[in-house]
Design a protein around this nucleic acid. Structure first.
Length: 566
RNA sequence: GCGCCUGUAGCUCAGUGGAUUAGAGCAUCAGACUACGAAUCUGAGGGUCGUAGGUUCAAAUCCUGCCAGGCGCGCCA
């Protein structure tokens, strides 16, 4: 049983009765909001409903509370105590066995615990990374990758049918520039004097690719420049994309779909979407260019689709791409971009509406930038000079799990300082190992129990879990459902990271009590008590495991220094 | 100039669909291992919630102005 539900049901009945007795202007019942009091002395759960109802009932808040409380207190199977406090808060103490009942839910639902039906099976596409295959991923991409990956996991847990997608811009000037960069390096390798423009890609990997192309086809330089550049571009693009995908896989990120821009052009998707927009009057011609009337939907200015030289803008293909997304049957689309694309949001939102889809069905999430900190110093990044830190470098230095967790440690709305020293340290300071250690520690207890022939039981006598920390832990475990729900509803996967850390902290505190209080020992001669402790531990482990899994982190059986993330 | 994001303890940050005494980690200081892993725990100090107003019985939270930082304002991608 979910006691939150029971509580809310009981309130509804009680209030309905009260409102029908009093002549009151309320036609509908206001939503009763429950909150966990900041102070323990205010009970397990509290509500301000008496303060909210005071005005419509034309009573003083405390009088309203006086009318509500007896009906609540009468329900002794749910409430241990109900009090009125302060201006009219109703503070409630829930029966311990009710609070503990969540353990049975967790045991039963196991890896499904924390899942919900928020998404109602709706198809949602999460598109992220989508870096052009012109060079290795940097840490900014890394943050977007982890955010998108974990958001997808969280949405799936919340009952959405999730598809993770990578959009490859394999058409356009960037690919030509890539081809030219390789071609120039290739000529250089052949001893020609070249001028390498600043606009070309400066990284050393370009030379490596040039070398490969040359080995593959030594005569390449003698074909026409346009052909050679096209060949180099295609070769380099394919190779770099492969490397990006390997890089992502090594970081634990796998996209369900890789979508190539050239597919849109092959199917005249751009032309077709132009026709659709024209038919609905959302485009016009001016100064030799084709424009999209995005100002109708609140954009700052109208946007060009086809330039006066006849070529298409990036935006044009993107419109076709989004039309294609909807055509594939997604009920909801989430695009994850770097903060530098903020100016792009309004026009895509406009497109979505112009194409006839609900504005609410589309979200563009902007991920703020990442600062890399080493020894307390900011490592400046410059793409121009190719001195940026790659995702691969960071991951190899700190390990996959630490890398992922650190990207989740901050709300995506805010810039992230990624402290390399801290991420690398295999110590108590590092939250990711702290969480994993809590899990490993429970597994260690289970190994010890097994030596005595004991296994975590399927059920137990809950009344034996009567220490305050045990009740608190059960309450905290019950909050996990809401955390996952909120993380999905608000597109805020970082909530999982904070929750997991807090749960680990709560467990470690509980565990350590045993040093000076035998009541906290798990494995004792009292078989029933031992069973109950193991049962609680099992449920903590399940929730830790679920949270770690959502974040794409391993839940290790044991921690061995220097051996994580191999 | 306009738009978006951010400003909370020395540091890094939670909390922002209002509500009882604003939280965590790190750092600092003081303590705790002959028993389930000390990669641990307990305690202490530390905050005009950027600022000035406003709404409210009640504001870190809602509204407005201002200050500071980041990003963006292309017939680039």
């Amino acid at each position: 049983m979910n006691w939150n539900q029971a509580l809310s049901d009981h309130f509804k009945q009680t209030l309905q009765k009260l409102i029908s007795q009093e002549k009151c202007e309320l036609s509908t019942l206001p939503d009763v909001q429950f909150s966990k009091p900041a102070q323990k002395i205010h009970g397990d759960v509290a509500t301000n409903i008496a303060l909210v109802l005071a005005k419509p009932l034309k009573m003083k808040p405390r009088e309203v509370a006086d009318r509500i409380v007896p009906a609540l207190a009468a329900k002794a199977d749910l409430f241990a105590k109900v009090e009125i406090a302060g201006p009219g808060f109703i503070n409630m103490w829930i029966q311990p066995h009710v609070l503990l009942s969540v353990l049975e839910d967790i045991s039963r639902e196991n890896e499904k615990y924390g899942h919900s039906t928020l998404g109602q099976g709706k198809k949602v596409q999460v598109e992220f990374v989508s870096a052009n295959p012109t060079g290795p991923l940097h840490i900014g991409h890394g943050r977007g990758a982890i955010y998108g990956d974990v958001l997808g996991n969280v949405l799936a847990a919340a009952g959405y049918d999730v598809s993770k997608e990578y959009y490859v811009n394999d058409v356009g000037v960037q690919m030509t520039t890539l081809g030219r960069s390789v071609y120039l390096r290739l000529q250089e390798l052949q001893g020609q004097k070249i001028e390498f423009p600043e606009t070309c890609y400066q990284g050393a990997y370009i030379r490596d690719i040039a070398r490969e192309v040359l080995a593959l086809d030594p005569k390449i330089a003698s074909s026409s420049e346009a052909d050679a550049i096209a060949f180099c571009g295609k070769y380099a693009g394919d190779k770099i994309l492969k490397e990006i995908q390997d890089d992502l896989a090594a970081t634990g990120v796998i996209h369900d779909v890789t979508f190539f821009e050239h597919e849109l052009h092959e199917h005249d998707a751009v032309k077709k979407v132009f026709q659709k927009l024209e038919k609905s009057g959302h485009t016009y011609e001016q100064d030799g260019a084709l424009w999209f009337r995005s100002t109708v939907f609140g954009d700052d200015k109208d946007r060009v689709l086809r330039k006066n030289d006849g070529s298409l803008t990036y935006f044009a293909a993107d419109i076709a791409y989004h039309e294609h997304k909807y055509a594939r049957g997604f009920d909801r689309i989430i695009d994850i971009w770097g903060a530098d694309h903020g100016g792009y949001v309004a026009r895509i939102k406009a497109v979505v509406q112009a194409l006839g889809y609900e504005a609410d069905s589309f979200d563009a999430v902007l991920i703020q930038l990442v600062n890399l900190i080493r020894d307390g110093e900011l490592i400046s990044m410059s793409t121009r000079s190719a001195q940026y830190e790659t995702l691969a470098d960071v991951r190899n230095e700190v390990g996959k799990d630490a890398c992922r967790y650190f990207f989740l440690m901050r709300s995506h709305h805010a810039q992230l300082d990624f402290d390399l020293n801290l991420a690398k340290s295999e110590s108590t300071e590092n939250p990711v190992y702290y969480i994993q250690y809590a899990y490993a520690r429970i597994q260690s207890v289970f190994r010890k129990a097994l030596e005595k022939g004991l296994k975590p039981p399927k059920t137990c006598d809950l009344t034996l879990l009567n220490l305050p920390e045990e009740i608190d832990l059960a309450v905290f475990l019950s909050e996990y459902r809401q955390v996952v729900h909120d993380a999905a509803a608000g597109l805020e996967p970082h909530r999982i990271a904070f929750y997991a850390l807090e749960l680990a902290l709560a467990f470690q505190g509980y565990y350590s009590q045993a040093k000076h209080d035998d009541r906290y020992r798990f494995l004792t001669d009292d078989a029933k008590a031992t069973e109950a402790k193991l049962y609680l531990l099992k449920n903590i482990a399940i929730v830790l495991h679920n949270a770690l899994t959502l974040m794409g982190l391993s839940a290790p059986e044991e921690m061995i220094k220097g051996k994580e993330d191999t």
